[in-house]
């Protein structure tokens, strides 16, 4: 389920955020996240920003590998 794509918040107006995912821009609902700010990264699904995220999957997997795999 749940094609999700990480995107950067460009601007926020009320409950609507304009986000950019490598050049593809779309307005999405920001109603699920409080005080969203331009410059933050979010996970977008079905027209809504569902989670605040960091855009750094590399250091995350590295940390996990360090903790569990070595």
């Amino acid at each position: 389920m749940c094609v999700g794509l990480s995107a950067k918040v460009i601007s926020v107006k009320g409950d609507v955020a304009l986000v950019d995912s490598s050049g593809a821009k779309r307005e999405v609902s920001a109603a699920l996240l409080e005080d969203l700010e331009p410059g933050e990264f979010v996970m977008v699904h079905a027209g809504a920003a569902i989670a605040r995220i960091t855009d750094d999957d590399v250091s995350e997997t590295e940390d996990l590998a360090k903790e569990f795999l070595s």
Binding site: M1, C2, L32, H45, A46, G47, A48
Partner: peptide, 12 residues
């Protein structure tokens, strides 16, 4: 249709 990920969008 959707699981928990999608339902909030439906409700919105």
């Amino acid at each position: 249709v959707g699981f928990e990920t999608t339902t909030p969008s439906d409700v919105l």
